[in-house]
Simulated scan of single mutants.
Amino acid sequence: MTATSDLFRQAAQILRDQGHTKGAYVDPDGRVCALGALSTAATGNPIPPETITPGILAAMGILAARIDSNIVDEDDLERIADWNDRRSTTAKNVIAAFQAAAEAAQDTADVIPLHPASQAVAA
């Protein structure tokens, strides 16, 4: 088990390694959006599972609280997708948001397991 903050750090590294995309969890070149990077860190798959675990939902809430989205009445997934897909949102912005979320989650007791393939990079 790895702390929630490590999940965000791993998602940032995945985005650095694979690149950033908009409008899809993952594009044909393997680039991922913010949600795709977060899902890859948690599950090994850039496409979030149909039923998102409470831990991942909590992580999305931490991230959604640190971004500027026009969507305020929707769920966190929609807020993150809206923000990621804006023309003005860059990979650098997404990585900075993951880093801010990691710092915010540093003191939390919530623990989200990383996908086994991701654990080596997070360590």
Rank of each mutant, 00 (worst) to 15 (best):
A64N: 05
A65P: 04
R66G: 00
R66W: 01
R66F: 01
R66E: 03
R66Y: 03
I67W: 01
I67S: 08
D68V: 11
S69I: 09
S69P: 11
S69F: 05
S69V: 12
S69Q: 07
S69T: 12
N70H: 08
N70L: 12
N70R: 13
I71P: 05
I71Y: 06
V72R: 09
D73K: 07
D73N: 13
D73I: 10
E74Q: 08
E74P: 08
E74I: 04
D75G: 13
D75V: 09
D76S: 12
D76F: 11
D76I: 06
D76E: 14
L77V: 14
L77A: 14
L77G: 08
E78N: 03
R79C: 14
I80P: 02
I80N: 00
I80L: 04
I80R: 02
A81E: 12
A81I: 07
A81L: 11
A81C: 08
D82W: 11
D82N: 13
D82G: 14
D82P: 11
D82L: 10
D82C: 14
W83G: 03
W83L: 12
N84F: 02
D85M: 07
D85S: 07
D85F: 10
D85Q: 13
D85I: 10
R86T: 15
R86Y: 12
R87M: 15
R87D: 15
R87T: 14
R87A: 15
S88R: 14
S88Y: 14
S88G: 12
S88A: 13
S88C: 09
T89A: 00
T89K: 04
T89S: 04
T89E: 03
T90R: 06
T90W: 15
T90I: 02
T90D: 10
T90N: 09
T90L: 07
A91E: 06
A91G: 01
A91I: 13
K92I: 09
K92Y: 14
K92A: 07
K92W: 09
N93M: 10
V94A: 06
V94F: 11
I95M: 04
I95P: 00
A96H: 05
A96L: 05
A96R: 10
A96S: 10
A96E: 05
A97S: 10
A97Y: 05
A97L: 04
A97M: 03
A97I: 04
A97P: 05
A97F: 06
F98I: 02
Q99F: 14
Q99R: 13
Q99H: 09
A100S: 09
A101W: 00
A101V: 00
A101C: 02
A101H: 04
A101E: 01
A101Y: 02
A101T: 01
A102W: 01
A102F: 00
A102N: 03
A102P: 03
A102K: 01
E103S: 08
E103C: 00
E103D: 09
A104M: 00
A104K: 01
A104N: 00
A105K: 03
A105W: 00
A105E: 05
A105D: 08
Q106G: 03
Q106C: 03
Q106R: 07
D107P: 02
D107V: 01
D107Q: 10
D107W: 02
D107M: 06
T108L: 15
T108Y: 05
T108K: 13
T108V: 10
T108D: 15
T108C: 12
T108A: 12
A109Q: 08
A109V: 12
A109N: 09
